[in-house]
Design a protein around this nucleic acid. Sequence first.
DNA 1: TTGTATGCAAAGGCTTTGCAGATTG
DNA 2: CAATCTGCAAAGCCTTTGCATACAA
Lengths: 150, 150
Amino acid sequence: MQCHSHSHNTKKEVEFFLSKLREVGSRVTKQRIALAKSIIAFRGPFSAEDLYSKVESQGIDLVTVYRCLSAFTDLEILSTVNFEDGTQRYEYLCSSDKGHHHHIICKKCKKVDPINFCVVQGQEQLVEQMGYANVSHKLEFFGICKKCAN
Amino acid sequence: MQCHSHSHNTKKEVEFFLSKLREVGSRVTKQRIALAKSIIAFRGPFSAEDLYSKVESQGIDLVTVYRCLSAFTDLEILSTVNFEDGTQRYEYLCSSDKGHHHHIICKKCKKVDPINFCVVQGQEQLVEQMGYANVSHKLEFFGICKKCAN
DNA sequence: TTGTATGCAAAGGCTTTGCAGATTG
DNA sequence: CAATCTGCAAAGCCTTTGCATACAA
């Protein structure tokens, strides 16, 4: 389910995003087109509120944002990211040409950096040997960034 | 900050828990003693509501549970565990003789199993080389357990 | 046309805050 | 006695739900 590189061409990226909707018979509305464009523009995880602030001016409702985030996640267009601050975040699965990755979050300023290595995927097999199917994982690092360390 | 083995002796475990409070000048109240006993009895992650249900009969308020959970976490008596279901969970740091560990959560029935191996700790050094101090991590596995797979 | 998607209003779940009174050290 | 902790009530924040209308296919 790895995405091809559609970077550097927003039009194609949006079309790719929308094709995922059409694939399963979901409808392509003007709200969803606007959301797709905004989602593609994010570099890294974003919250419902983050996304809403980008589309609010177009008269799109917060509830629509929540409903679409949920729908896009079901379609595996988005993945969920959790920073332990009580707010769910999402990330466009095709935005990172690096594919599967994790994050380091500064405990003070909440800055986020991507981490492009992952040692955990091999462990999923060990977990499957424990009797689990369809194993995935969520991993985030927390620390203090250079600026906040003074 | 690894805990010694206090298993098989509840009285000693409770005393150890309370000594952590006294260490920093926090007060030992009858509510906190009751909470300590209940927390020690949990085998694995529990929510505020889980804990409240154990002490409610003693007239302890839900707000007190929340406030103590927060205080105990600050004192590193508890760690926070997140299962991506919108409810914060906690785990007694000394209850697992295995020390640092992770969990596999069944996506259907929400059953939790501990995972006693961890390949990630070595990666924390790599993250520190990226310019972060005090690096820790949160890792959880998600899958479908045998029963739910039918 | 027919079912899906949206907007608005309201509710819901989990957690935090304010404050007065009780308790600990 | 002074500072912390507790209970109660209320608020807060993020997210979901209900329902009538609008819209895509």
